[in-house]
Design a protein around this nucleic acid. Structure first.
Lengths: 131, 131
DNA sequence: ATCGTATTACGATGATTGTCAAACTACGAT
DNA sequence: ATCGTAGTTTGACAATCATCGTAATACGAT
């Protein structure tokens, strides 16, 4: 199982927790960091597969690697190599099984909080992403 | 504002963020700790107002105080004094406005993960707390 | 083989965090 | 006024964490 068939194997190995091993604590901890939350937001923002470098994060390369690893080990993203680039993708489905609605709620909350900067919570919140 | 009318005033003051000031990062960070998550789960588990001591946490008094403060300063719980006891209550509505569905998703995920201990993720998850 | 690009690995460092014990404060009851 | 209960504050400690720079690795192109 999980033969990684079709994926261009490049020799490097990346450890991922299985869907059933994803821990709530780890996920919350991973999402609690502004930079990591930003990465997740960008990943969910249309571009599903992105190389690390494409994020233009305000940190050094090694710090960037660190954050991606935390996300991967928490089970939030799946990574694979493509040439020298490492692509990242949200594990949306696995997360939905283990913690239904959580990722969506976090992303939605981040979007709501973003609106704060301009229109500081005077209005009762426009209820983004309503059902 | 916030006259705390009707509440037995006891001289001590507790700082709470306003609903509009609740930060996603702080909430996620607060919930990422097992002990704090346990507190939140117990609070949501029927008993809405509980004295700190009623939780029987596996930590010292000072550590307990610390965790309750983190939860309070993140905006997750509201606390008030009643005699020598300090009561805690989930700020469910404030949280719902700022991050709709988040608290519920976290609690639900924790419940799902709990079932792991016995029935380790072989089944496709019984979808706890359905709509 | 060599070079450039993308990323990792290896310390190192300063900040935060979870934990505790001991001393202290606030309140209710005696 | 005294005592017990409930919680706070302070200071300390070890562990974790985010951050960096530098050296090393893997891969594609030349």
């Amino acid at each position: 199982m999980a033969d990684t068939a079709g994926v261009k194997r490049t020799g490097r190995r990346l450890e991922h927790p299985q869907a059933g091993e994803i821990r709530v604590d780890a996920v919350l901890h991973a999402l609690a960091d502004p930079i990591r939350l930003r990465i997740v937001r960008e990943l969910s923002d249309g571009h599903d597969d992105m190389a690390c470098i494409a994020f233009a994060l305000p940190v050094s390369k090694s710090t960037s690697t660190h954050h991606f690893r935390v996300l991967r080990e928490a089970g939030i993203i799946r990574q694979y190599y493509e040439g020298t680039s490492r692509m990242s993708r949200l594990r949306t489905e696995d997360l939905e099984v283990r913690m239904p609605g959580l990722l969506g709620a976090v992303l939605n909350a981040a979007r709501i909080a973003e609106g704060d900067d301009t229109a500081a919570g005077t209005e009762p919140v426009p209820a983004v992403g309503g059902r």
